[in-house]
Design a protein around this nucleic acid. Sequence first.
DNA 1: ATGAAAGCGCTAACAA
DNA 2: TTGTTAGCGCTTTCAT
Lengths: 342, 342
Amino acid sequence: MAVTMRDVAAKAGVSPVVVSHVLHKKAATIRVGEATAERVRQAAVELGYSCNIWARNFRAQQTYTIGAIHGHGFPRPILSSGSRYFSALLDGLMEGAFSYGYSITLCKQLLGGSPNDAMSDGRFDGLVWYSTLDSETTAKMLLGCSVPLVLVHSRSRDFGGVIPTVICDNDQGIGLAVDHLFGLGHRRIAYALNLGWQYAETSLRLTAFREHMRRRGIAITDDDEIRVDTDLSELEAYIARRPRHTAIVANNEGLAAEIVARAQRHGIAIPYELSVVGFDSTSYCEEIRPTLTAVRQPLVELGRRAIDLLVQRIRGEACEQPEVVVPCGLDVRGSTAPPPCK
Amino acid sequence: MAVTMRDVAAKAGVSPVVVSHVLHKKAATIRVGEATAERVRQAAVELGYSCNIWARNFRAQQTYTIGAIHGHGFPRPILSSGSRYFSALLDGLMEGAFSYGYSITLCKQLLGGSPNDAMSDGRFDGLVWYSTLDSETTAKMLLGCSVPLVLVHSRSRDFGGVIPTVICDNDQGIGLAVDHLFGLGHRRIAYALNLGWQYAETSLRLTAFREHMRRRGIAITDDDEIRVDTDLSELEAYIARRPRHTAIVANNEGLAAEIVARAQRHGIAIPYELSVVGFDSTSYCEEIRPTLTAVRQPLVELGRRAIDLLVQRIRGEACEQPEVVVPCGLDVRGSTAPPPCK
DNA sequence: ATGAAAGCGCTAACAA
DNA sequence: TTGTTAGCGCTTTCAT
């Protein structure tokens, strides 16, 4: 059906190699006279030939395709509503991949299905794994990956330093949040985190929070840490008891949004009675009322840097650095204000 | 490097065909004894074999991959800011494609580069072209596509009825907008449209607007149509003259947002002095102030239906219908109110 | 119940 | 300057 090199070769009265060389500058050992070359080009145009990229890739044992593994608890990312987390990451992945001549494929196996399959079925030259649930099983799966792999949101040392990683500076980010709240006058600050999904960065952020508070002379106790299970009942209970804190730093955007919504339902005015800071700061923070003050994780850059590392790996170049750490910012919006005078 | 069927076959002391049959249930004419089969499975596990999907696809002359052509004026869609137009469409495309066992590939050639290449280089089993600039050149390119193709936002009859299309019911959608504004008491209503990108649907919507107004006894003149070039200078001029209209229906979200922003800059209160209705209604409409009343185009569904049609085409089944039309909704938000008294 | 051969479209390596 | 051979990993077809 489709016109192949063979057809062009036949029409031009040469062998396929010649066509390959003339049209694609492959087959380096071949020299071709201008007359022949012209004949070949002519034939190609007349037949409407175009190179079958996949046949070429198959031959080269390369796919020039990168996969993004969605290591969340959802079947696949939803781009059109809610947090723009994946949208932002994907923007970075596309930007990076395109610049190196790679494409990004979204498929069921990666976005929620069975990553293990896609990790070794020859579909991808490399993979980006993001948003890790830091379990033994996961780690084993990742370490067994048969193509180059880069992790977003993990520490390289958690994987024996053999897998390159890209992560934001959680400590510095949490520092920004704490600074901001202190500047407003808050002293009784809580940290809220999900237990259900054990995000790799949760403990980093929690530790950072404790440390930043300690440095300001405030010791964090269990009562200052709101541990929320998937059903959010602990959160509901905490809010119902009327918080003794004047501000909460939440481990992520979604949780922050939940806190705001539930507080409002209980008649607690945000931000006047309670300030809330989230983590991520995608434009989702603009969509909710009040808008959400949040630590900005540079997701687009994270994606881009992940591709940089990955392509180095794919090309077999030595990775300059096994772990890239990108600084955070703080977007002050409507969910934070000075504490009530009390 | 990677373990192939050959390796497994060697280890199990059989030929590759047997492996193919046992492991992938291919090679239908083959019968294998249970003992042999078990030996093969054993060998596969021990060697850590997994089928190279691409080799299989290459052999089958299928890629099980669908491309989405970004026919806009931008180098590639930006997912993480601004309108969620592409995000929504992509959600639908993924949902549809995954359900049929296809994947979606995002690559430079399609998302802004040179679509023509990707339309025939064997990379895709089929393509979805969205957001058409309705030019001669485009039409010729699309008609020359060598793989199955489905257009989103076009009328099938504009392409000789040979290319299936998916489109929202623009007439009905505009009707909702006009109804809404009339219900609020507006009579002097303008329609704003971009000239720069000649979206395929622009004229459909404009015609619908004229017709719906006419039916209500109002004749639309040139003065009621604000034609905006890419530099938006006409819009600026219109606003600066203080609109004699009390409401504007804009051809899309982005233009509506521009109108709101510029009006506000000129001290015109939205919605009290001027009501604005957009078209698309992605969650971007929630992000701007005031929030934007808009006709909701069911983008996710559009994407899904596009895949339905495409897969039928790919499989060579007869398309039940060459053109799918999906009804619109109306999301009333903060940019519309009764007209100022007087 | 099993195997051998052939080929998808392309290109690297080695002739001529 | 040009051609031949061979093979990427898989599966279909035909033979045993």
